[in-house]
Nucleic acid binder design. Structure first.
Lengths: 193, 193
DNA sequence: AAATACACTTGATATAGATCAAGTGTATTA
DNA sequence: TAATACACTTGATCTATATCAAGTGTATTT
């Protein structure tokens, strides 16, 4: 149940056996069916989520009803609307399961208690957050600097795992493209290979 | 010299007088003239920067030579190519001064030493990084979900300080638009007001 | 097993925003 | 004080990508 989480944390910082026991006590396990929501627009994001298994997405729905993918999370990744989770304000995003999933969830009070009781977790989340910033910065540059075709090829090169795992229409949305445009780009790239 | 930095840190965490003395010892002050570089593509980002005064920008230059604004930093903001700074790999970005500036700079070894000697700074940078993630997430959603006009009005509403301070052509680049397009949008909005 | 929904493809057309080009006013430099 | 550069504007045209529409194959539901 905690295998993936503990491996992930211990890659960055050291935890004693006692620490591990304390750590576990803060989390709530949860299983999700495909298409099941964890967060809907207008709700407060009550949990920070860690994926032990399965696949989640966070997305925004614009005025026209179009979905825009913000993030995906599979085994070994955290997910939350960080803003809503930390501020308690309602979220403008949705989180749901693309595949059946097993999660570990932590509430904000427990998150804060954990950081006080296990100060080493400040370091863990500081490192994690910095890595998150790096990848968001790369994605931003990719989004504003390149053509549709370049965006796609760069994403595929930088993130092959995503290409195997995520349906093509969701990749399109992640890149800010329509599914039709991505389909045509892929066709063109196939021909030229 | 350290006024803005200390105020900023003490808004988030507590520092004793002794802590402050230790903290100061890790930083190098630096003055920059307008248009002066702190980082150029191909260099390693050796410093994490804090702006005590003035205005900096970080940007990417694409294959066609077009600049794309990644971030601005004025009094009270940090700046670095986080990836290059932490990994030691060469940067793909430029950082320079838009206005004359006074900076406090810290090297990676000093940054790490500071975190070890002042563990409370782990917390400070964890909070800071989370806030950074929140704002990058908002910017991303803005970038991929809305039309040029909506992007601009939303940025102006969410970030009025930026509008006053940053030249219009750089705002355009920050939004992923050409200066011509932004000029026309503003004209249209003036008329309709 | 049939019915329905969904992911993806392909074609025709529309359009938001880019590009190219020229001009104005203001700030910096010689 | 003249010269030059730079930020911004405005117009004409072009183009990458969106939109609309229809069709195919596969998976899910009844």
């Amino acid at each position: 149940m905690f295998d993936v989480l503990l491996a992930h944390i211990q890659e960055k910082v050291n935890l004693s056996a006692a620490d591990v026991a304390v750590l576990k006590s803060f989390f709530i396990p949860k299983k999700l069916r495909k298409r099941q929501y964890v967060l809907q627009e207008g709700d407060v994001c009550k949990y920070l989520l860690f994926a032990e298994k399965g696949l989640l997405r966070m997305y925004h729905v614009d005025d026209k009803g179009t979905e825009h993918m913000i993030q995906f999370a599979w085994e070994g990744w955290w997910m939350a609307d960080t803003y809503s989770f930390l501020s308690g304000d309602v979220s403008e995003y949705y989180i749901d399961a693309i595949e059946d999933a097993e999660l570990l969830m932590i509430t904000l009070p427990n998150f804060e208690a954990m950081l006080l009781q296990l100060p080493v977790m400040e370091r863990y989340f500081r490192i994690l957050s910095q890595n998150n910033i790096i990848s968001k910065e790369k994605r931003l540059v990719n989004t504003i600097s390149y053509s549709a075709e370049e965006k796609y090829t760069r994403l595929a090169a930088a993130n092959p795992e995503m290409m195997q795992r995520i349906p093509q229409n969701l990749i399109a949305s992640y890149l800010g493209l329509t599914p039709e445009t991505l389909s045509r780009i892929r066709k063109k790239l196939m021909r030229s290979k």
